[in-house]
Amino acid sequence: MASKKTVIIGATDKPGRYAFLAAQMLKEYGHPIVPMSIHKGQVSGEEIIELSSKPPIEGVDTVTMYINPLHQEEWADYIISLTPKRVIFNPGSENQGFIQQLNEAGIESVEACTLVMLRTNQY
């Protein structure tokens, strides 16, 4: 199975959060991660990148969203600029307006749980 570089929007160093579990599980399954957030910290041995710096990232396969739709708009253009193959909207992050923008940009959008996708070999 090919590894899929995954940007985690809303990454966290808080162990009880799904974004934390996703970072661990993605690495466990052999996928390189790029954790990004407005909060500093480390997750699964990776420094969390300050989202507002909007760094260029090469070779992004997947962006997995863990932020509320209300906070997605300011990052939408940046996420599209990463040209991922797909964006996964985890439960609670679904955003029809952003999904439409992604579709118009030729980027697949998936409303699903990253953890479940990994466990069921649908990632």
Rank of each mutant, 00 (worst) to 15 (best):
Met1Ser: 13
Ser3Trp: 14
Lys4Ile: 02
Lys5Asn: 10
Thr6Gly: 08
Thr6Val: 05
Ile8Ala: 04
Ile9Met: 15
Gly10Pro: 02
Thr12Asp: 01
Asp13Gly: 13
Gly16Asn: 14
Ala19Ser: 15
Ala19Val: 02
Ala19Phe: 02
Ala22Gly: 08
Ala22Asp: 00
Ala23Leu: 06
Ala23Ile: 03
Gln24Asp: 14
Leu26Asn: 06
Lys27Gly: 07
Glu28Asn: 13
Tyr29Val: 04
His31Gly: 02
Pro32Trp: 01
Pro32Lys: 05
Pro32Ile: 06
Val34Phe: 10
Val34Arg: 00
Pro35Trp: 03
Pro35Phe: 04
Met36Asp: 08
Lys40Ser: 15
Gln42Phe: 15
Ser44Asp: 13
Gly45Ala: 03
Glu46Lys: 12
Glu50Gly: 00
Leu51Gly: 02
Leu51Trp: 09
Ser52Gly: 01
Ser53Val: 03
Lys54His: 12
Pro56Gly: 06
Glu58Ile: 02
Val63Gln: 07
Thr64Ala: 11
Thr64Leu: 03
Asn68Gln: 14
Leu70Thr: 11
Leu70Glu: 12
His71Met: 15
His71Trp: 14
Trp75Tyr: 15
Tyr78Ala: 07
Tyr78Glu: 01
Tyr78Ile: 09
Ile79Cys: 04
Ile80Glu: 10
Ser81Ile: 03
Ser81Tyr: 08
Pro84Val: 09
Pro84Tyr: 09
Phe89Arg: 03
Gly92Ile: 04
Glu94Tyr: 05
Asn95Glu: 09
Asn95Met: 03
Asn95His: 09
Gln96Met: 12
Gln101Leu: 13
Asn103Tyr: 00
Ala105His: 10
Glu108Asn: 04
Ser109Gln: 04
Val110Phe: 07
Val110Pro: 00
Val110Thr: 08
Val110Cys: 00
Ala112Ser: 13
Thr114Asp: 04
Thr114Met: 02
Leu115Asn: 07
Leu115Ala: 07
Leu115Phe: 07
Arg119Trp: 04
